[in-house]
Design a protein around this nucleic acid. Sequence first.
DNA 1: GATGAATGAGCTTTCATTCAT
DNA 2: TATGAATGAAAGCTCATTCAT
Lengths: 203, 203, 203, 203
Amino acid sequence: MRTEQIRAVNRRQRILAAALDVFSRRGYSDAAVDEIALESTTSKGGVYFHFPNKHAIFLALLDQTADLLYSRAEQATLAESEPVAQLDAALWTITRTFENHRSLTRLFLVEARGAGRDINAHMQEIHNRFAELIAQRLDAAVELNVIPPLDTRVAGQAWFGAINEVVVSWVLSDGDEGLAEAYPALRALLLRSVGVPPSEGEV
Amino acid sequence: MRTEQIRAVNRRQRILAAALDVFSRRGYSDAAVDEIALESTTSKGGVYFHFPNKHAIFLALLDQTADLLYSRAEQATLAESEPVAQLDAALWTITRTFENHRSLTRLFLVEARGAGRDINAHMQEIHNRFAELIAQRLDAAVELNVIPPLDTRVAGQAWFGAINEVVVSWVLSDGDEGLAEAYPALRALLLRSVGVPPSEGEV
Amino acid sequence: MRTEQIRAVNRRQRILAAALDVFSRRGYSDAAVDEIALESTTSKGGVYFHFPNKHAIFLALLDQTADLLYSRAEQATLAESEPVAQLDAALWTITRTFENHRSLTRLFLVEARGAGRDINAHMQEIHNRFAELIAQRLDAAVELNVIPPLDTRVAGQAWFGAINEVVVSWVLSDGDEGLAEAYPALRALLLRSVGVPPSEGEV
Amino acid sequence: MRTEQIRAVNRRQRILAAALDVFSRRGYSDAAVDEIALESTTSKGGVYFHFPNKHAIFLALLDQTADLLYSRAEQATLAESEPVAQLDAALWTITRTFENHRSLTRLFLVEARGAGRDINAHMQEIHNRFAELIAQRLDAAVELNVIPPLDTRVAGQAWFGAINEVVVSWVLSDGDEGLAEAYPALRALLLRSVGVPPSEGEV
DNA sequence: GATGAATGAGCTTTCATTCAT
DNA sequence: TATGAATGAAAGCTCATTCAT
């Protein structure tokens, strides 16, 4: 029993890993369940035993990615006490995590958009969660008079969008220019955008 | 001859209009050429007379949208002489144009992402053009010492990404909250991000 | 235009003919649309151009068979003036038609049963139409005092059921014993069942 | 050992009961072994331990139903001494049994038809057995000069077919009109069909 | 004996694209 | 030029059956 369960969990992981690869290479609708099955050394039936449909595989992957990214950002945040330092840490962590998981990044920022109404709606919620994470630290900073008052909801979205655009540009380019190069400029820009003088936020 | 050409152009326009509707409702891969033909009161053969394939229709639409948006932004820019005022005008125009063309916006910012390798690459170039438009004004502003030196390439991407995220959030929400509400906050944030004090950039 | 339409109608007929063969050999759910396409020298897509789905092909065939059978029975009826003679003629015609169209018969009486809720309901209506046809002549005969009063609705069903059972027994047997052999006995039985003395109804 | 056997028999019964439910709701080919397993609180493997395949479950159910129906009809017969009274009793019993076992009836008269070659052949034998049961009593009645000579084989089929049609019409209708309403008319019709005057056969 | 994960053949259906008319 | 019938490659999904545990 236990061994069977372990095997089942393993297989589920293998399927997700294969799906990540296939989806990020082909995009959602050009990905074939056949290929996912092949790449996870399973049968098509095996895939459908673990997931009700293709949609669900994609969503599972998206949620897994979102959770990974979110929990890392949150933890980075918890390690700091000042709101601006928290934002700084979150920004750094998010950027690093994207850079270290190119396939997940491509899936999350590129392939998930335009993959159908359901997925769009789902992604929108995820985006909101991240925007909210940022907005909350900004609220705290405003509260402490560290930064001037501002519409933190819009700012959260703008920050997340700015990060994403830079990251997408990197993930879609074949060049080997890393994300790290763009990071300092992005950081300075974002901090300044909420009224943090460049010098103050330096690591 | 002349009338035939006019008719041909009209038909092409009708096809594009129908395609815009279908693509923005269904997304790229769920859109059927059949439906586009139906909605443009043509036959499927008619569609294939004007466009080599589905791909090309989508690209044409994307380019048309990009051109519309770009030329408006550029014109808005030309009406101003100061770089910061130009940026301000471009930002305002882009936001307004998105708001007034919901289907085009959805197509351009949502459905175009994840619609396959070719289209991704194409869109990346388009995004670059917009980022470049912004970067050039920023360069000018730096040159004139209106704003401090900064990595204008990254800033251009960040601005465009920030705008897009706010716009996407609006276009995907069913709510009737307009884009106009978010505009002032976004504007202040972006200007401040490049070192323009809030007061100075006010209209 | 005209020639295209003719060809389309021909193809539709070919598909129906092939479907009749396949359905009556394999039964509804074991019949593959692939085989129907193959046998009608079309492509699978061709089949789906002419019919929305497998279900519809089956129903078209069933309705076609029912119409054939019903119109023949009705015409046979119209050639006679006395209700009992009409019943006699209808019975003879129905039996002959079944005998001359073995595949249609098999489809209609065997494969159509148990082919799913929709088809069951549809067939029930068709059965009712036949039972009604019989019931009406019986009503007329009762009216004329040719036969004693009876529940003609039940009688119509019973007659149709009796005929069908004998026909099914024939169509499912490999033996070459014709339906004609059983006809006289069936006829006598049915006529007597409504009170027509054997002698009177003789041809 | 004994208890294990009992448990095995119980499980077999549970599977058959579940199968009856599933088959009569979904029809043979739309019924999933999974659902049968679920409904009999067993596993799929459990089902396959007791039956070699889906086919066999269906046949077992059919045979069980046929045996139930046949033995009741036969017993009803044995309680009477006169052939006509025997037929009368059999007819009554068959009708009542159908009425009291709606699912079995649906399975036996609707879903069993068109469920594939094997099952068709099997059902044909079962139908023959019933037709034969009737034919034998009719033979006896002819022998005793109670009814005129007739083709009892055809008559047996016709009777069984007539009954079945009326029953199917009832079982497929959602209405709550019972089978009992149609019974007297059917009885009178069938008896008269073999030459029994209506009055004589009355209960 | 029982379980349920795994298999894989097979199914219906869709749809971009072609081309005779 | 325009039409729409025809093609055929794929795709997602189902499910009877097997078998290691």
